[in-house]
Design a protein around this nucleic acid. Sequence first.
RNA 1: CGGAGUGUGGCUCAGCUUGGUAGAGCGCUACGUUCGGGACGUAGAGGCCGCAGGUUCGAAUCCUGUCACUCCGACCA
Length: 480
Amino acid sequence: MGKEKKLVESITSREKDFAQWYTDVVREAKLCDYSGVKGCLNYLPNGYAIWEKIQADLDRRFKDTGVENVYLPVLIPEALLQKEADHIEGFAPEVAWVTQGGLEPLQEKFCIRPTSETLFCDVWSKTVQSYRDLPKVWNQWCSVLRWEKTTRPFLRSREFLWQEGHTIHATFEEAEQRTLLMRDVYRDFIQEDLAIPLVCGRKTESEKFAGAQDTYTVEALMHDGKALQSATSHFFGKAFPDAFEIKYSDKNNELHSVYETSWGLSTRIIGAIIMVHGDDSGLVLPPRIAPIQTRVIPIAQHKEGVLEKAQELLHALQTAGYTARIDDSDKAPGWKFSEQEILGIPTRIEIGPKDIEKNQVVVVRRDTREKIVVSLDEITVRLGEILETMQKEMFERAKTFLDAHIDTAVTMDEMNQKFQENRGFIKAMWCGEENCEDEIKAQTGGASSRCIPDDEEQLSEVCVCCGKPAKHMVYWGKSY
RNA sequence: CGGAGUGUGGCUCAGCUUGGUAGAGCGCUACGUUCGGGACGUAGAGGCCGCAGGUUCGAAUCCUGUCACUCCGACCA
């Protein structure tokens, strides 16, 4: 990566103030803005279009594994939410309640869903009777509300958009497989489409979802060295089904409980895209998730034939299947370049009198600013290649960054020192006790266990913190 | 929830100390000249100064309360 020129004054430098940089990019790229209610965002066209792309791509991947979409209500009766003890205990502090209907106070209050396990379980408790009714593999796209105290656009808002998948199965194995399968769907989607490399694993007891038996996670590393839990998949076992009495008769007419899973990915992932790929000029969208792949920018468009040629090019691109747009506003070219870069559109195609003369265009990649001269005859083929190359290189660049920010530690001194020097993930052994997680958090200034990876290494025999025999290798990191 | 900070045209802010009825730059509109990295000129539009009380002849300015936002911390799937 070369030295980046600072072309957009309205965006704070990433190195100078990462938090401000993030806020600036969100604003300048017009992804969302603040509404009158704390923690509730106005999703603007540029931001919502990214979400629509995420929805489309992820939904297709879901459907490929047999997922069916449904929609359940936004309101949950209090009694329903309280059926599973761990669940309500975990969510109580951040639930919002509806206590009045019209002019009358309600007899029973309703909570605005913070998540819908209880609603799905309620439906199934009434409708599932036979093994022939299983499995249920359902998903809904919706918004949820959690009364967060600290809010940031996309990363932590009170209302946010997400999908929540919920399934029930006859056997432990099948449910566990589904949990892992959906974790893999997220992993593949995030790595392949969003070009964000991940560390995958399962959560420790203290970091698990309220009521879950196992929580699997995919963790991404932001450019400031902080981790972001990017999607999760939970295995519930029988806790919810037992609380809700979801039972079915097997072939021998014996009654059994079901095994349950749930899994979700939210608009928070947009924050990850910004913080993994963005630079001092603004957003950089991976080509596969970019709502618009290229923007045609006519140069000296007032001159004879330029605009016509640019329009011709636009139509050729659109006919070839690209999502292409043209900036034929009367702004100066430099302004248009900056605008395309702020918005993170993966490529722009400059076409001016000199190009037309030579039957060529200049394709400029957003990530590297590399200028590629392409013959007009080949542009519809070459653009696709350039976008694919860019997608691949964006992933590789992020992967190099991730790998460079994963380190190991066998003593607390080493761990503290490395968290000081090089923010990112630290791999270290752990005894399995929550006390040590707390102690590590206190000593390192906030690092928590991010996950126990699938492929654990044996870095030492003992816990990095207490020195007792180690049970697991854990990725530690400070997180959003 | 604790600490710090900020609320004044769409945006960034000045004005507040020492009260006299609101300014700048950018953006926006129109026209003209421009056009290969955020062009320039001319003429315009746009604000009950976050909100509510109070003090005062008079409040953007002083006082009280309140709300919102930002950052840090705590908390948080």
